[in-house]
Nucleic acid binder design. Structure first.
Lengths: 198, 198, 198, 198
DNA sequence: GATGAATGAGGATTCATTCAT
DNA sequence: TATGAATGAATCCTCATTCAT
């Protein structure tokens, strides 16, 4: 019971930064970055706009912080990928893990997917591009045919889009996700085999 | 004389309206819809904001008009597709023609791809969704496995994204586009064969 | 009566820019630049803040425009001064004319005098400094003693400050102004004679 | 032991308060009062804004305290001046000592000189005006000609402005200061002699 | 066909200040 | 002595839109 009180306190106290991030991400993903005003975020949290500014220096810093926080697993994945041999197994594992990582930060990626124009102008843009390039360098064999290269990109893309676009496909969400993953792995596999002889 | 006047008038008239559309599309694609102000569009054209309002009742109407104008080939494609038997050949042809149609309105699709969050809130959103559903109904066999359904979506998606994402892939643009198309057709083919036995 | 209507119209119409400048200068001089908000200016004119932005791109542009408009006589004075021989008569004439010029833009100079810290950070700062340097080069003989150089600066300064600081001195304003001018001319004269032997 | 504690405490205590004053004065003089935020001051001192409020009840109190602390010598000078006969020697001595006093609080006077508009609205304004009036009553002979009265004011003014305006005059700072003082004394002397025959 | 002038609503951001701890 | 968290009021500025001419 003391635990409960503690919990409440902890929730109100020191949690504001988190709560801002949560609400912001939700709204950014839903309506886009520009259409989401700080007033709206503040109102949902029942604090003043100024309170947001205590925790984040600018609106952009909110999204930057979200990106930094939620995107770290991917950073690590790339790190890991770079240290592995570029075998088919590695590529497949990368796709599998990437899918997982995306799942962990679904709303952020939905946001990034759906607001690319905005993202490009934000500071995140560059960082994100760098990461994608990192991923590419791991799965794409530069000596393979253009078609196979496109296959790999398409694999990544399918994962990205999968979660959102497939929403209006019938079927159990979990099954859908598995299907998406399967297609992605398939694409990477085809690409690899194309390049390394059948 | 009447003809001359007509011609001139039509040219002048169609001209400004067109020029507004052109500039608007360019800016929308580049910076996003919300970040592009009517002031900016007007300045680029060296007219007043009020002039824009002579040609379009609202900002939204500009994008709506662009969508209506540039998207008609796709509308027709769907019409055509519906009247065809759902054979593999048809599906492949649809993909081929869709690729062409996308090419004809690349900036618009770049815009739609990169501003989904915005588009969703605009009147276009629904229309666009309807079209995509139409396309889906033609290529996707509802009895096929989820995986195969995903393959078809992925094909469409690859086409959409292709043009922009592949930009930073090395290689001749034309070759790249062919590669993208090839992968898309491949996906649809695999899906079809999966569903109808090998 | 028609004339009256005309007048009223003319006053309302096309005059807004001027009216903004007038009110702004008044308030800037009275309360300082930073303490004067655009809201205040707009309220006094019974227009919206946005109306101000139709006529001036930024708050700073308002003061810049005032400076440009009201300061031209001084610009011209310097031009004239440069073309004259550096005789005592010229110097005295410069002081006399400078006094006049200051009188014509008293509120602006009061503002600049009393808000130097602000002015320094505004774009006017540099321009103003340049002008003062121009003036100096005309009245100050670089070979004269430091003391005589200070005398010249003191003369300019006395003119600047005169109008405002002397306010709480007893006496007819006109007489005071004459006295100020006399002291200034005296200083310049002393400086000149110091340099060129008695 | 008590002594040690006292010493440390006093040092610490006096220290922070002092450091606030120092930094504040520096920034006020540099950027003006309104443009200097408490955040800025706090950041420079590496404390929180709230800490400032432990030492000063309001922002205004900071400048008031500076004024009170740094301006006391002038207060005393006036006291002294009032008790002296109004001879030329006294007047000259006043100018000399005033120059010294100004030197001791140069940044404050730079601030007051350059932010008159602000100062006027602050509580210091009145006090400062009173002091200037006190000074005037000592050096200015109310029966003298307006011109001579202006000379006296100009003398004070020259001292005030001297330090800052003369900055961009060539020459050794010390020499310049001497020159400024000389001109001021000169002005007072001329005024006195004008009034008392010769 | 188009402009000049204006508006109302809302945007992000900053500030001095407060208070419990 | 100080901090961490927050507020309320204000700031400059931008936007889509309107309307008389």
């Amino acid at each position: 019971m003391g635990g409960t009180m503690d919990g409440t306190k902890q929730q109100r106290r020191g949690n504001t930064r988190q709560r801002i991030q949560d609400v912001a991400l939700e709204l950014f993903a839903e309506q886009g970055y520009e259409k989401t005003s700080l007033r709206e975020i503040a109102e949902r949290l029942d604090v003043t706009k100024a309170a947001l500014y205590y925790h984040f220096k600018t609106k952009e810093e909110i999204i930057v912080s979200l990106f930094a926080d939620l995107t770290q697993p991917i950073e690590e994945l790339i790190e890991w990928g770079r240290s592995q041999p570029h075998t088919l197994a590695t590529k497949q594992e990368i796709v599998r893990r990437y899918d997982e990582a995306l799942g962990g930060a679904a709303p952020l990626f939905r946001f990034m997917q759906e607001n690319q124009a905005t993202v490009r102008e934000l500071r995140i843009g560059e960082t994100f591009k760098d990461r994608m390039t990192g991923l590419r360098e791991i799965i794409i064999d530069p000596d393979s045919s253009l078609t196979d290269q496109v296959r790999c990109l398409s694999a990544l893309f399918t994962l990205h889009a999968g979660m959102f676009v497939m929403r209006d496909l019938e079927g159990d969400p979990d099954d859908k996700r598995k299907a998406v993953l399967e297609v992605a792995i398939d694409l990477v596999t085809q690409a690899h085999q194309g390049a390394h002889g059948a």
